[in-house]
Protein backbone atom coordinates (compact mmCIF):
# COMPACT_ATOMS: atom_id res chain seq x y z
CA UNK A 1 0.00 0.00 0.00
CA UNK A 2 1.36 3.41 -0.91
CA UNK A 3 2.09 5.96 1.76
CA UNK A 4 -0.76 8.13 0.59
CA UNK A 5 -3.28 5.31 0.62
CA UNK A 6 -2.08 4.22 4.03
CA UNK A 7 -2.38 7.73 5.40
CA UNK A 8 -5.79 8.19 3.77
CA UNK A 9 -7.10 4.96 5.26
CA UNK A 10 -5.92 5.99 8.70
CA UNK A 11 -7.65 9.34 8.26
CA UNK A 12 -10.84 7.78 6.98
CA UNK A 13 -10.95 5.43 9.95
CA UNK A 14 -10.22 8.30 12.31
CA UNK A 15 -13.04 10.25 10.73
CA UNK A 16 -15.53 7.42 11.27
CA UNK A 17 -14.28 6.73 14.76
CA UNK A 18 -14.61 10.37 15.74
CA UNK A 19 -18.19 10.67 14.57
CA UNK A 20 -19.27 7.37 16.07
CA UNK A 21 -17.75 8.29 19.43
CA UNK A 22 -19.45 11.70 19.30
CA UNK A 23 -22.76 9.97 18.58
CA UNK A 24 -22.28 7.57 21.47
CA UNK A 25 -21.28 10.36 23.84
CA UNK A 26 -24.23 12.47 22.78
CA UNK A 27 -26.65 9.57 23.28
CA UNK A 28 -25.28 8.89 26.76
CA UNK A 29 -25.38 12.57 27.72
CA UNK A 30 -28.87 13.23 26.45
CA UNK A 31 -30.41 10.14 28.10
CA UNK A 32 -33.74 8.63 27.24
CA UNK A 33 -37.00 8.35 29.10
CA UNK A 34 -40.36 6.62 28.89
CA UNK A 35 -43.66 6.71 30.78
CA UNK A 36 -46.35 9.36 31.23
CA UNK A 37 -45.47 12.81 30.05
CA UNK A 38 -46.81 16.28 29.41
CA UNK A 39 -45.50 18.72 26.80
CA UNK A 40 -45.31 22.28 28.11
CA UNK A 41 -44.44 25.21 25.90
CA UNK A 42 -43.35 28.02 28.16
CA UNK A 43 -42.14 31.59 27.89
CA UNK A 44 -41.18 31.52 31.57
CA UNK A 45 -37.47 31.77 32.36
CA UNK A 46 -35.86 28.35 32.32
CA UNK A 47 -34.14 28.87 35.68
CA UNK A 48 -37.51 29.15 37.42
CA UNK A 49 -39.69 26.84 35.38
CA UNK A 50 -37.19 23.99 35.48
CA UNK A 51 -37.39 23.85 39.28
CA UNK A 52 -41.15 23.61 39.08
CA UNK A 53 -41.09 20.90 36.43
CA UNK A 54 -38.77 18.82 38.58
CA UNK A 55 -41.09 19.27 41.55
CA UNK A 56 -44.14 18.29 39.47
CA UNK A 57 -42.40 15.15 38.25
CA UNK A 58 -41.40 14.22 41.80
CA UNK A 59 -44.95 14.65 43.06
CA UNK A 60 -46.84 12.99 40.19
CA UNK A 61 -44.37 10.78 38.36
CA UNK A 62 -45.29 12.55 35.13
CA UNK A 63 -42.34 13.67 33.05
CA UNK A 64 -42.44 17.25 31.77
CA UNK A 65 -41.12 17.79 28.27
CA UNK A 66 -40.61 21.54 28.04
CA UNK A 67 -39.93 23.83 25.11
CA UNK A 68 -38.52 27.16 26.26
CA UNK A 69 -38.71 30.49 24.52
CA UNK A 70 -35.80 32.90 24.39
CA UNK A 71 -35.89 36.66 24.49
CA UNK A 72 -33.58 36.88 21.50
CA UNK A 73 -36.50 35.65 19.39
CA UNK A 74 -38.58 38.54 20.77
CA UNK A 75 -40.82 36.01 22.53
CA UNK A 76 -42.59 35.36 19.26
CA UNK A 77 -40.72 32.16 18.49
CA UNK A 78 -42.92 29.89 20.55
CA UNK A 79 -46.17 31.57 19.56
CA UNK A 80 -45.33 31.16 15.90
CA UNK A 81 -44.57 27.55 16.53
CA UNK A 82 -47.87 26.89 18.29
CA UNK A 83 -49.81 28.62 15.52
CA UNK A 84 -47.87 26.80 12.81
CA UNK A 85 -48.56 23.49 14.57
CA UNK A 86 -52.29 24.16 14.80
CA UNK A 87 -53.24 21.42 12.31
CA UNK A 88 -51.39 18.81 14.32
CA UNK A 89 -50.74 20.16 17.82
CA UNK A 90 -47.70 18.96 19.68
CA UNK A 91 -48.01 20.99 22.87
CA UNK A 92 -50.34 20.09 25.74
CA UNK A 93 -50.05 23.23 27.82
CA UNK A 94 -48.99 26.80 27.18
CA UNK A 95 -47.65 28.53 30.27
CA UNK A 96 -46.80 32.15 29.72
CA UNK A 97 -45.44 34.89 31.94
CA UNK A 98 -47.97 37.29 30.44
CA UNK A 99 -51.48 37.27 28.98
CA UNK A 100 -51.35 39.03 25.60
CA UNK A 101 -49.98 36.13 23.63
CA UNK A 102 -52.35 33.76 25.37
CA UNK A 103 -55.35 35.83 24.27
CA UNK A 104 -53.86 35.91 20.79
CA UNK A 105 -53.66 32.12 20.78
CA UNK A 106 -57.27 32.00 21.91
CA UNK A 107 -58.23 34.19 18.95
CA UNK A 108 -56.30 31.98 16.59
CA UNK A 109 -58.37 29.02 17.80
CA UNK A 110 -55.43 27.16 19.22
CA UNK A 111 -56.69 26.84 22.80
CA UNK A 112 -59.30 24.57 24.37
CA UNK A 113 -61.41 25.59 27.36
CA UNK A 114 -60.61 24.02 30.70
CA UNK A 115 -61.88 25.23 34.04
CA UNK A 116 -59.54 23.91 36.66
CA UNK A 117 -60.77 23.09 40.14
CA UNK A 118 -57.60 24.69 41.50
CA UNK A 119 -58.70 28.04 40.08
CA UNK A 120 -61.93 28.43 41.99
CA UNK A 121 -60.49 30.99 44.41
CA UNK A 122 -58.72 32.99 41.68
CA UNK A 123 -60.57 36.31 41.07
CA UNK A 124 -62.69 36.38 37.94
CA UNK A 125 -60.68 39.29 36.50
CA UNK A 126 -57.79 36.87 36.02
CA UNK A 127 -59.84 34.23 34.24
CA UNK A 128 -61.21 33.92 30.75
CA UNK A 129 -64.95 33.45 31.18
CA UNK A 130 -65.19 30.22 29.18
CA UNK A 131 -61.99 28.86 30.66
CA UNK A 132 -59.72 29.25 27.64
CA UNK A 133 -57.02 30.45 29.97
CA UNK A 134 -56.48 31.17 33.61
CA UNK A 135 -54.24 33.86 35.07
CA UNK A 136 -52.42 33.66 38.36
CA UNK A 137 -49.65 35.45 40.23
CA UNK A 138 -47.56 37.81 38.20
CA UNK A 139 -45.12 40.62 38.04
CA UNK A 140 -45.45 44.35 37.91
CA UNK A 141 -44.02 47.13 35.78
CA UNK A 142 -41.44 49.03 37.80
CA UNK A 143 -38.79 51.67 37.55
CA UNK A 144 -35.32 50.42 38.44
CA UNK A 145 -32.94 53.13 39.64
CA UNK A 146 -29.21 53.02 40.31
CA UNK A 147 -29.08 54.51 43.82
CA UNK A 148 -25.38 55.44 43.46
CA UNK A 149 -26.31 57.78 40.64
CA UNK A 150 -29.45 59.49 41.93
CA UNK A 151 -30.51 60.67 45.35
CA UNK A 152 -33.69 59.17 46.69
CA UNK A 153 -35.54 62.50 46.88
CA UNK A 154 -35.29 62.83 43.12
CA UNK A 155 -36.91 59.47 42.34
CA UNK A 156 -39.87 59.86 39.96
CA UNK A 157 -43.23 58.80 41.36
CA UNK A 158 -45.26 58.62 38.18
CA UNK A 159 -44.78 57.75 34.54
CA UNK A 160 -45.91 61.30 33.82
CA UNK A 161 -42.94 62.81 35.68
CA UNK A 162 -40.41 60.25 34.49
CA UNK A 163 -38.43 62.92 32.67
CA UNK A 164 -38.67 65.55 35.42
CA UNK A 165 -36.12 64.14 37.85
CA UNK A 166 -33.23 66.13 36.42
CA UNK A 167 -31.73 62.98 34.92
CA UNK A 168 -30.59 63.40 31.34
CA UNK A 169 -33.05 61.46 29.11
CA UNK A 170 -30.21 59.49 27.54
CA UNK A 171 -29.56 58.06 31.00
CA UNK A 172 -33.08 56.58 31.09
CA UNK A 173 -33.86 53.31 29.32
CA UNK A 174 -36.89 51.43 28.06
CA UNK A 175 -37.14 48.29 25.97
CA UNK A 176 -38.48 48.38 22.40
CA UNK A 177 -42.23 48.87 22.92
CA UNK A 178 -43.21 46.56 20.07
CA UNK A 179 -42.10 43.42 21.86
CA UNK A 180 -42.76 41.53 25.07
CA UNK A 181 -44.15 43.16 28.17
CA UNK A 182 -43.08 46.63 27.04
CA UNK A 183 -45.59 46.25 24.18
CA UNK A 184 -48.20 45.17 26.73
CA UNK A 185 -47.37 48.22 28.83
CA UNK A 186 -47.82 50.50 25.80
CA UNK A 187 -51.19 48.90 25.05
CA UNK A 188 -52.21 49.29 28.70
CA UNK A 189 -51.40 53.01 28.52
CA UNK A 190 -53.46 53.26 25.33
CA UNK A 191 -56.36 51.71 27.22
CA UNK A 192 -55.84 53.87 30.33
CA UNK A 193 -55.04 57.27 28.83
CA UNK A 194 -56.51 56.93 25.36
CA UNK A 195 -54.47 56.46 22.15
CA UNK A 196 -53.58 60.12 21.61
CA UNK A 197 -52.16 60.77 25.05
CA UNK A 198 -50.30 57.45 25.12
CA UNK A 199 -48.76 58.02 21.68
CA UNK A 200 -47.78 61.54 22.66
CA UNK A 201 -46.10 60.28 25.86
CA UNK A 202 -44.07 57.73 23.89
CA UNK A 203 -43.30 60.39 21.27
CA UNK A 204 -41.85 62.62 24.00
CA UNK A 205 -39.60 59.79 25.22
CA UNK A 206 -38.34 59.27 21.71
CA UNK A 207 -37.94 62.98 21.03
CA UNK A 208 -36.01 63.66 24.22
CA UNK A 209 -33.59 60.84 23.47
CA UNK A 210 -34.51 58.18 26.02
CA UNK A 211 -32.44 55.08 25.31
CA UNK A 212 -34.51 52.37 23.62
CA UNK A 213 -32.99 48.95 24.24
CA UNK A 214 -33.37 45.40 23.07
CA UNK A 215 -35.19 44.00 26.09
CA UNK A 216 -36.10 44.49 29.73
CA UNK A 217 -33.10 42.48 30.84
CA UNK A 218 -30.81 44.84 28.94
CA UNK A 219 -32.42 47.80 30.71
CA UNK A 220 -31.81 46.06 34.02
CA UNK A 221 -28.19 45.21 33.20
CA UNK A 222 -27.34 48.74 32.10
CA UNK A 223 -28.91 50.31 35.18
CA UNK A 224 -27.22 47.77 37.44
CA UNK A 225 -23.83 48.51 35.87
CA UNK A 226 -24.39 52.27 36.17
CA UNK A 227 -24.35 52.83 32.44
CA UNK A 228 -27.92 54.11 32.80
CA UNK A 229 -29.40 55.82 35.84
CA UNK A 230 -32.88 54.39 35.57
CA UNK A 231 -35.17 52.38 33.33
CA UNK A 232 -38.55 50.72 33.06
CA UNK A 233 -38.60 46.97 33.47
CA UNK A 234 -40.49 44.15 35.18
CA UNK A 235 -40.19 43.00 38.76
CA UNK A 236 -38.62 39.66 37.83
CA UNK A 237 -35.79 41.45 36.04
CA UNK A 238 -35.46 44.19 38.64
CA UNK A 239 -35.27 41.87 41.65
CA UNK A 240 -32.83 39.71 39.78
CA UNK A 241 -30.45 42.66 39.90
CA UNK A 242 -31.29 43.37 43.56
CA UNK A 243 -30.58 39.75 44.52
CA UNK A 244 -27.30 39.85 42.63
CA UNK A 245 -26.24 42.71 44.90
CA UNK A 246 -26.50 45.51 42.33
CA UNK A 247 -26.90 49.02 43.83
CA UNK A 248 -30.44 49.46 42.57
CA UNK A 249 -33.80 50.40 44.02
CA UNK A 250 -37.14 49.18 42.69
CA UNK A 251 -39.79 51.89 42.49
CA UNK A 252 -43.52 51.29 41.90
CA UNK A 253 -44.95 54.24 40.01
CA UNK A 254 -48.34 55.95 40.28
CA UNK A 255 -49.06 54.53 43.73
CA UNK A 256 -50.23 57.78 45.29
CA UNK A 257 -53.82 58.46 46.27
CA UNK A 258 -55.80 58.67 43.02
CA UNK A 259 -52.87 57.42 40.98
CA UNK A 260 -53.56 55.00 38.17
CA UNK A 261 -51.40 52.21 39.63
CA UNK A 262 -48.85 50.17 37.76
CA UNK A 263 -49.38 47.46 35.19
CA UNK A 264 -49.67 44.01 36.70
CA UNK A 265 -48.96 41.24 34.27
CA UNK A 266 -50.26 37.84 35.42
CA UNK A 267 -48.97 34.45 34.40
CA UNK A 268 -51.39 32.45 32.28
CA UNK A 269 -51.91 28.75 31.77
CA UNK A 270 -53.91 27.31 28.89
CA UNK A 271 -54.80 23.94 27.46
CA UNK A 272 -53.97 23.45 23.79
CA UNK A 273 -56.86 22.30 21.58
CA UNK A 274 -56.21 18.76 20.37
CA UNK A 275 -53.38 18.30 22.88
CA UNK A 276 -51.73 14.90 22.45
CA UNK A 277 -51.80 14.23 26.22
CA UNK A 278 -54.99 15.91 27.49
CA UNK A 279 -55.14 13.99 30.77
CA UNK A 280 -51.66 14.84 31.95
CA UNK A 281 -52.17 18.38 30.57
CA UNK A 282 -55.15 18.92 32.88
CA UNK A 283 -53.23 17.45 35.79
CA UNK A 284 -50.38 19.85 35.13
CA UNK A 285 -52.69 22.87 34.91
CA UNK A 286 -54.41 21.83 38.13
CA UNK A 287 -51.04 21.54 39.81
CA UNK A 288 -49.75 24.82 38.45
CA UNK A 289 -52.85 26.74 39.61
CA UNK A 290 -52.77 25.32 43.13
CA UNK A 291 -52.22 27.94 45.85
CA UNK A 292 -49.20 25.97 47.04
CA UNK A 293 -47.55 26.29 43.63
CA UNK A 294 -48.22 30.01 43.57
CA UNK A 295 -46.74 30.20 47.06
CA UNK A 296 -43.65 28.34 45.89
CA UNK A 297 -43.27 30.76 42.97
CA UNK A 298 -43.55 33.68 45.38
CA UNK A 299 -40.91 32.15 47.61
CA UNK A 300 -38.36 31.72 44.84
CA UNK A 301 -39.11 35.24 43.66
CA UNK A 302 -40.39 34.41 40.19
CA UNK A 303 -43.71 36.11 40.87
CA UNK A 304 -44.05 39.10 43.13
CA UNK A 305 -47.79 39.61 43.29
CA UNK A 306 -50.09 36.69 44.09
CA UNK A 307 -53.61 36.79 42.69
CA UNK A 308 -55.06 35.48 45.96
CA UNK A 309 -54.03 34.97 49.53
CA UNK A 310 -51.68 32.03 49.52
CA UNK A 311 -50.40 32.53 53.03
CA UNK A 312 -46.85 33.42 51.99
CA UNK A 313 -45.13 36.76 51.63
CA UNK A 314 -43.41 37.66 48.43
CA UNK A 315 -39.66 37.09 48.63
CA UNK A 316 -39.04 40.45 47.06
CA UNK A 317 -41.89 42.68 48.17
CA UNK A 318 -42.45 41.47 51.71
CA UNK A 319 -45.70 43.01 52.88
CA UNK A 320 -45.69 45.95 50.45
CA UNK A 321 -49.06 46.43 48.83
CA UNK A 322 -48.91 47.33 45.16
CA UNK A 323 -51.75 49.12 43.42
CA UNK A 324 -52.44 47.77 39.94
CA UNK A 325 -53.95 49.56 36.96
CA UNK A 326 -57.69 49.26 36.82
CA UNK A 327 -58.00 48.53 33.08
CA UNK A 328 -58.98 44.96 32.35
CA UNK A 329 -56.88 42.50 30.39
CA UNK A 330 -59.27 42.30 27.43
CA UNK A 331 -59.17 46.09 27.01
CA UNK A 332 -55.40 46.03 26.97
CA UNK A 333 -55.43 43.30 24.34
CA UNK A 334 -57.94 45.26 22.26
CA UNK A 335 -55.48 48.17 22.10
CA UNK A 336 -52.49 46.06 21.28
CA UNK A 337 -52.59 46.07 17.47
CA UNK A 338 -53.00 49.81 17.16
CA UNK A 339 -50.37 50.55 19.82
CA UNK A 340 -47.88 48.16 18.25
CA UNK A 341 -48.42 49.67 14.84
CA UNK A 342 -47.91 53.15 16.27
CA UNK A 343 -44.83 52.08 18.20
CA UNK A 344 -43.33 50.40 15.14
CA UNK A 345 -43.96 53.58 13.17
CA UNK A 346 -42.47 55.72 15.92
CA UNK A 347 -39.44 53.68 16.98
CA UNK A 348 -38.37 51.99 13.75
CA UNK A 349 -37.78 55.30 12.01
Amino acid sequence: MSRLAWRSNILFNRFLLFFLSMLLLATVLSGCGTGKSVVVYTAVDQVYSEQLFTQFTQETGIRVLPVFDVEAAKTTGLINRIIAEKENPQADVFWSNEFIQTILLQEKGVLAPYVSASAKDIPQAFKEEKGYWTGFGGRARVLIINRDKLSRDKYPTSLLNLLDSGVSPDQIGIALPMFGTTATHAAALYAQWGPEAALSWHGTLKEKGVRVLDGNSVVRDLVASGELIMGLTDTDDAYGAVNNGAPVDVVYLDQEEGGMGTLINPNTAALIAGAPHPETARLFIDWLLKPSTEAALLKVGFIDLPCRDVGVQSLNLGDTVVKGMSVNLAAIYANLEVSRTDMTELFMK
Binding site: S37, D45, Q46, V47, V70, S217
Partner: peptide, 27 residues
Amino acid sequence: LGATLLLTPPGAGTLTLKIYNYLHYGS
Protein backbone atom coordinates in the same frame (compact mmCIF):
# COMPACT_ATOMS: atom_id res chain seq x y z
CA LEU B 1 -30.85 29.47 17.29
CA GLY B 2 -33.48 30.84 14.89
CA ALA B 3 -34.69 27.57 13.41
CA THR B 4 -33.75 25.27 16.30
CA LEU B 5 -36.03 27.25 18.61
CA LEU B 6 -38.98 26.44 16.38
CA LEU B 7 -38.15 22.81 15.77
CA THR B 8 -36.43 21.32 18.77
CA PRO B 9 -38.58 18.50 20.21
CA PRO B 10 -40.14 19.02 23.64
CA GLY B 11 -37.72 18.18 26.42
CA ALA B 12 -34.70 18.53 24.18
CA GLY B 13 -33.22 21.99 24.65
CA THR B 14 -29.81 22.81 23.26
CA LEU B 15 -26.84 24.48 24.91
CA THR B 16 -27.32 27.59 22.78
CA LEU B 17 -30.99 27.89 23.74
CA LYS B 18 -29.96 27.57 27.36
CA ILE B 19 -27.32 30.26 26.97
CA TYR B 20 -29.85 32.69 25.50
CA ASN B 21 -32.37 31.80 28.17
CA TYR B 22 -29.87 32.35 30.98
CA LEU B 23 -28.77 35.54 29.32
CA HIS B 24 -32.28 36.87 29.78
CA TYR B 25 -32.33 35.82 33.41
CA GLY B 26 -29.08 37.73 33.90
CA SER B 27 -27.08 34.81 35.16
